[in-house]
Design a protein around this nucleic acid. Sequence first.
DNA 1: CCTATGTGATGATATAAGTCAATCAAATGT
DNA 2: ACATTTGATTGACTTATATCATCACATAGG
Lengths: 230, 230
Amino acid sequence: MSKLFESSCLHCKKRSEIFEALSEEELERVDMCRVSMHYNAGEIIFKQGSPCYDFVCVTSGLVKLYIEGENDRRLIIGFAKPVDYIFVPGAYVDKRHHFSAVACEETTACLVEADIIQNMVRTNQNFANSFIRKISMQAIGLFEQIASLTHKQIPGRMADTLIYLSGKVYSSNPFSTNLTRQDLADLSGMTKESAIRVLKTFKEDDLIRIDGNLIEIINLQMLETISRNG
Amino acid sequence: MSKLFESSCLHCKKRSEIFEALSEEELERVDMCRVSMHYNAGEIIFKQGSPCYDFVCVTSGLVKLYIEGENDRRLIIGFAKPVDYIFVPGAYVDKRHHFSAVACEETTACLVEADIIQNMVRTNQNFANSFIRKISMQAIGLFEQIASLTHKQIPGRMADTLIYLSGKVYSSNPFSTNLTRQDLADLSGMTKESAIRVLKTFKEDDLIRIDGNLIEIINLQMLETISRNG
DNA sequence: CCTATGTGATGATATAAGTCAATCAAATGT
DNA sequence: ACATTTGATTGACTTATATCATCACATAGG
């Protein structure tokens, strides 16, 4: 909505890694053309295939990023949380989004014109470097996910998903989430029913505890073993 | 081996997209510190997990890039052919290789110190831009592969592999390849036996023809339909 | 020349995981 | 307060795909 209830980029600066490379003057330039948006849970921020005009920087809430395949199948390839900006590879190739972004919960985000960012990548070496490092990390994450999805079976994949959520996304244990079983399935490359069944066996084996929105990993070591054995 | 039997980067320039952004002076700097290497089929160029010192630019032959998972399982994530340089995401993160590179056939490649390249990314805007575009394209390719591998079943995945090889890697039809059935399987996320079986059904249905090292797509349209239906 | 060794091919079998269908609980709208 | 929707759960069944075992063939090495 209005940018009034967001402080300016200059003060927001301390929280967002990548923007540290920018000078005050550059930050002001970003601030000038940014639009602060509010999304309710479930609302689409951008959709795969649509033209991409903006870079999105999540300032609160949580956003899931997923690929839509044929037959209504989806695969969640990651999350963006405060203060991640979402790297959109299409911005440098075909100006199209190659995955969709949807708010998992109440989310606010700043949209900045892609041109402005790309321009700063051109003119500011340090920014460009952070940018490339960020893309690199995303690529490495994808490698890990692709290896897990193709080489492991259901228990191993779900173990990876739980470890990822607790370790990388929510950074806490137990963690409170409003991801659905379908989301967990889309993260692990399986059907919702299979997800429910593995989670049940994990509960029965006292590896995890689930109470409503709260998921707790009780036996991380065993989960890691399951992950390793595929 | 010796750099004598390779012409200098200055003359090689016309063939390699990304280096077009470099000035003569910069190209000379690259030329100075580059090492030209020769690899026989099957030889490892670099291995997942090892420290990465160099960027690799393939000047002849073909290189397969693959992730090694647990239990000896591998997944081929792409190929590098003349004149691709291999983007190594670890160079900007942890200085480790996150996938392995192996020569599929007689291959020559130039190795350039990662520092030199990274330095030029810093100082040359156009080079940085080409660099980011290249990474972006790799990421988009990974998205497509990950969607294919997780959402499609064996015939769809093998169809994708054949279309990819003919269209993107060999750019010809028929194409001559010395990839083994195991390689085709590693590209498609299945076992060697499954790969052999689908290929057999494809042959029986007159979609493809295989004669020794030669693979020909006879009915591309039908293969694309199979790909779409998963 | 014979023996390893790697690759391709095939059949029998086991099993992992998807599909389909029904039920239940909680949330939401009227 | 009731109807409707949405998500979670479970069971029965089917099927896709891996595994295992075997065999043929070519090539390389001693």
